[in-house]
């Protein structure tokens, strides 16, 4: 058992970690105050492997230059799981990231962490949310074994549970602050593979676009994944991303969302608490989203993080921030997710 680390007064605002699926999104993040920008290569080594998205070597090199000139850091997500026949591809991705001069890689697979730690000892390692480490014992194991410097907490912990983890690890803790929610068994979810034959953990996408069909019927807009009806939206409904975990199904005669409602996480109101308990960084979801989304979310969260750091006691969520975020949220409903579970 590690000695508890007492919470210290924050010496700097929590870091703001923003997504970028394209170079303009990277610029939007950097220009609007992101401390870290995370992104991926154009293949299944990352969990947003979508057509036309992500970075090749040239655009990544330019992106790193741009970010570094403005004092931001670039993190490369290599957060899917290599298979025995594809190991070399993931290994090569680690080498590419290191040779291009990224500031850290975000990794889920223990084998890949071991490789990176051995082959590139200077390269900063972050444990991905896909690593699904929810306890300080697990995080400290990754720290002792591979030297990880930061861990992203899965979105299954309450605030109290996250606080206990932070108090018992020397590793920086990053938590999700905003974005679309999924069923939240990160790194262990194979649900969509039942409909598509592909798992997000190995192919880099919950709902591969080739398996998605949107169809406008006379009475409703239907979304299907691999032929499975995910949801039907009437004229007043707001469609969301067609993932199985956010599907509406008939269960024992009732039609509802048995896994997860299509909502967005928004933890602005928790910022004083998160800062007080020693959270090092706040992550914004959405590498698949547009530069406009990145610009809006980054601007709001930069302002909020700075306001919280200036005066935690007097921090209040501004209605204008909530309006801006609600306007770009999936599902038009924001929740605190697992951070707030009254029954816990």
């Amino acid at each position: 058992m590690n000695a508890a680390v007492l919470p210290q007064p924050a010496a700097r605002p929590m870091k703001l970690v923003c997504p970028a699926g394209t170079p303009p999104a990277l610029k939007a993040a950097v220009d609007n105050g992101a401390d870290d920008v995370y992104l991926g290569f154009k293949d299944e080594t990352n969990a947003r492997n979508f057509a036309g998205l992500n970075f090749d070597d040239r655009s990544l090199r330019e992106g790193i230059d741009y970010a570094h000139r403005k004092g931001a850091q670039v993190l490369v997500a290599l957060n899917t799981y290599p298979q025995p026949e594809s190991w070399r591809k993931w290994q090569a991705a680690v080498n590419r990231a290191a040779s291009l001069g990224v500031d850290a890689i975000i990794v889920a697979d223990a084998g890949l962490l071991a490789y990176a730690a051995k082959a590139h000892p200077q390269l900063r390692l972050h444990l991905s949310v896909q690593g699904s480490a929810t306890s300080h014992e697990a995080i400290n194991f990754y720290h002792e074994r591979f030297g990880i410097r930061r861990a992203v907490l899965p979105r299954v912990l309450s605030v109290e549970q996250a606080e206990k983890v932070i108090a018992r690890t020397p590793v920086e803790i990053e938590v999700f602050g905003f974005g679309s929610l999924s069923i939240m068994v990160e790194g262990r979810c194979a649900l969509s593979s039942y409909a598509t034959g592909e798992s997000p953990n190995t192919h880099g996408g919950c709902s591969p676009a080739k398996a998605i069909r949107w169809q406008q019927r006379p009475d409703a807009l239907e979304s299907r994944l691999g032929g499975v009806l995910i949801d039907r939206f009437g004229a007043e409904d707001h469609p969301g991303y067609p993932t199985l975990c956010r599907g509406r199904f008939v269960v024992n005669g009732d039609t509802y969302y048995p896994f997860e409602e299509p909502t967005s996480l928004n933890t602005l109101e928790l910022l004083p608490r998160l800062q007080a308990m020693g959270v090092a960084a706040i992550k914004i979801e959405g590498r698949q989203r547009s530069p406009v989304y990145v610009e809006t979310v980054t601007r709001v969260w930069r302002e909020a993080l700075d306001a919280c750091f200036r005066d935690r006691e007097r921090f209040r969520v501004k209605p204008a921030w909530q309006d801006a975020l609600a306007g770009i949220s999936e599902g038009h409903q924001c929740t605190l997710g697992a951070y707030h579970r009254p029954w816990k």
Partner: peptide, 30 residues
Amino acid sequence: ADPDTLFFNRRLLVEGDTEIALLVKNTLDT
């Protein structure tokens, strides 16, 4: 404007091949 937001709001309707739609959207974003 954010294309996904317009889509969630039913203000941008897209019919057809989702993979090509995504390719076009992401390329335009680039």
